[in-house]
């Protein structure tokens, strides 16, 4: 029943950008899907809270002056033996759990976003070029992507990360660990983006507006940049959102395996790893709270990605 043609009076005043957004199907789907709104709100709040960690965290876990081993292993405030100033308790070194989670979350989100950004730029760039230029270049790029896709990302990330660490001299290994992790996850991400971008490019390049641009005489790079790229962004955005969730998990997994972010500047994964060692002795809060923070963050991003996939894919409606 979409056959009813839009019949606008071209002389009428065109709607403003805001009005266009408000009228769009995506916006309508957003405001009529409570889970999407909650997920979006939560994601935004979580990201803001983590980035504002230095402002809102009760303690600075990296300031030795604020840490006292005497306050180590304190349970949450509502449990017997807990202290009111440490709402979620303290870890083995006496750092406030809430503060470390905020700072750790910031690190996890930064690593996730940077890794997805790297994978996206690399993948979309190569994918659009492969799809538009075609021929041997396409074959080479996509063959590499195919080969890489057969090996699961997390394994590859462990491997690249391991090799990267082995390259670095031990003295600076910890300092550069975060960049190695970003590169490792980013490099495992790109084939997804390349595939999606190439697929969308092939579809778009067949469309007559691209042929019209070629008949006008526009050069290939301008057609890719101005015409094709903007039209491939929808599926890329979906992949990027789901990719962010996966990248946060990948970083946490690497850190949990002891291959990622070092305990001196812990991410959520590092916190869980450290806490895991105390789990059997009953200090459950050191693991549980970072784990909850991680899962809720990933869940919110996934929920958003799930809604986006449905809302941005008109075929599924």
């Amino acid at each position: 029943m979409s056959a009813v043609e839009p019949r606008v009076d071209p002389a009428a005043k065109p709607p403003s950008a805001w009005a266009r957004l408000r009228e769009s199907d995506v916006f309508h789907s957003f405001v009529s899907t409570p889970s999407a709104m909650i997920a979006a709100a939560f994601t935004v709040i979580a990201i803001l809270a983590c980035f504002a960690a230095p402002l809102i965290a009760p303690f600075n876990p990296f300031d030795p002056a604020q840490i006292s081993l005497w306050d180590g292993k304190l349970p949450p405030a509502w449990v017997e033996g807990g202290q009111a100033q440490y709402v979620l308790g303290t870890d083995n070194q006496g750092r406030d759990m809430l503060s470390t989670i905020l700072y750790g979350g910031r690190l996890s989100i930064i690593v996730g976003m940077a890794a997805v950004g790297l994978g996206m730029v690399l993948g979309v760039g190569l994918g659009v070029i492969a799809g538009y230029v075609g021929g041997a270049l396409d074959a080479v790029i996509m063959r590499i992507a195919d080969v890489q896709l057969t090996i699961p990302g997390i394994l590859l990330a462990i491997l690249i990360n391991g090799i990267g660490r082995a390259f670095l001299p031990p003295e600076i290994r910890e300092e550069f660990a975060i960049y190695v992790v970003i590169i490792a996850i980013g490099l495992t991400d790109w084939p997804q983006f390349a595939r999606v971008a190439r697929g969308a490019t092939l579809v778009e390049a067949q469309k007559e507006y691209v042929q019209a641009a070629r008949v006008i005489g526009l050069p290939g790079w301008l057609i890719m940049l101005r015409h094709i790229l903007p039209n491939t962004l929808r599926p890329v955005l979906v992949i990027a959102t789901i990719g962010l969730a996966l990248a946060v998990i990948a970083e946490a997994t690497l850190s949990f395996l002891g291959q990622g972010i070092p305990p001196t500047t812990p991410s959520l994964g590092t916190l869980i790893r450290v806490g895991n060692e105390y789990l059997f002795s009953g200090l459950w809060w050191i693991t549980l709270f970072p784990a909850i923070a991680l899962v809720v963050l990933v869940f919110a991003v996934n929920l958003l990605g799930d809604w986006m996939r449905d809302a941005l894919n008109p075929k599924l409606r």
Partner: peptide, 22 residues
Amino acid sequence: SLIGVSLPTFIIGIGLIYLFAV
């Protein structure tokens, strides 16, 4: 299932160990 996708493998493992083993 969406929660399942959001649970990292190692957290599931830790959770199961804590519940069923510890």
